[in-house]
Amino acid sequence: MTQIKMIATDVDGTFLNQDRRYNQARFAQQLQQLQEAGIRFVVASGNHLGHLHRVFAPTPAVQTFVAENGGLVVDHGETLFEDIIPTPTVHQIVADILADPALRPQVLRLSGAHGTYINRRDHPSDEAAQRYFFNNIVLVDDLTQVEDTIYKINGEWANETIQQLAAQLNQRFPDQINAMASGFGSIDIVAAHMNKAIGITRLAQSWGIAPEEIAAFGDNDNDRDMLAHVGLGVAMKNGTETVKAVANLITPTDNNHDGVLDVIDHILAGEV
């Protein structure tokens, strides 16, 4: 059995329960055990870095983040890698999506180094959720005029259509983007070659860790590449069927019942 040297986990629908909380006391104890065992813990999320800092503020020992679906890798405040969507491509994609009634979302966002940009006329279906996920909102009149380092384009559509729409977007803009359903009615659009697997691989290589020495947890389509790439890909019991199809293991319990933490205990015990 290959020894696990790195654990990477998605956040929403995976590490967090439906109330967007986690068992802080149990996790803090596990972090100490992981450190003693020489196992690195990494957050791998589609969310922007500021949001992830806020989520894990109760556990300050968490200091390594693969944010923006792999587009930004930060360890202890140091940016190790970043991969952006070129500004002309951002402007072209935004203009084309907004001009096509079949593709136009309820809300379109640009996740950048200095803010999350939203057209001031757009209104999300859930204002509270937007405030939770995006604590750096910048309202603008025209997204095609935004000049910033853009890691990701995020759109909000009807939840039942997002996987089909992601496929349509990839067909519409071949070799320019990678569009992935990310849950909660959202699609994340990153650079064509980018995904969480790329982000965690770059990080692992900097630590001398091979893919087969990584365990990764996820629940949605933007986790598929990551789970398929590592030695132990763990899909959540509450995850999508497409994620479960590439996993080595499915958690016995879901995200509302410490599914990730339960498997971490098994990893620490050398049982998986």
Rank of each mutant, 00 (worst) to 15 (best):
A215I: 00
T14E: 11
A197P: 04
A25I: 14
E82I: 00
N220K: 00
P174A: 07
I250N: 04
L34E: 03
D83Q: 10
D254W: 04
G155A: 08
G112A: 05
R120S: 12
N47P: 11
F133I: 06
H123T: 15
P211Q: 10
A102C: 04
I93Y: 09
V263P: 09
N238K: 03
L268V: 04
V234M: 10
A245V: 08
Q30E: 12
E212F: 01
H53G: 00
G231Y: 07
W207D: 01
R26F: 06
A245K: 08
G218Y: 04
T161H: 14
L80K: 09
I198M: 05
E78T: 13
A57N: 11
I4P: 07
V140K: 02
A204C: 08
D265W: 05
E68F: 08
N220V: 02
A235P: 13
D75W: 00
F56A: 04
L139K: 10
Q33V: 01
A181V: 01
A216E: 11
Q92V: 00
S206Q: 13
N119I: 05
R172N: 01
I85C: 03
I84G: 00
I84W: 04
P211F: 02
Q18R: 14
I214R: 03
D126Y: 06
P252V: 07
L203S: 10
R40Y: 12
Q29R: 14
A216Y: 10
K152G: 11
I187F: 11
G77L: 11
K5S: 02
L49W: 14
I250P: 12
S186Y: 14
L31E: 12
N220E: 14
L72M: 09
L203C: 09
A247H: 09
I200Q: 07
A28H: 13
I118C: 11
N222M: 08
A181C: 01
N47A: 13
I39H: 08
A95M: 04
A179Q: 08
A247I: 08
Y132C: 05
G218F: 02
N154V: 14
T253G: 01
D96F: 01
A129N: 13
T242H: 10
L203K: 06
A128C: 05
G233I: 10
E147S: 03
R21Y: 10
F133M: 09
V73R: 06
A197M: 03
S111Q: 15
A99T: 11
V146G: 01
V107H: 05
S125D: 14
F184P: 03
N178A: 06
Q24P: 00
E241R: 06
A8H: 01
H91C: 02
L169G: 04
H53A: 00
Q63K: 12
L249V: 02
A179G: 07
A129Y: 15
G185S: 12
Q130F: 15
N178R: 12
T2W: 00
T144S: 06
D258I: 11
F173I: 06
R26C: 02
D96A: 15
S206W: 06
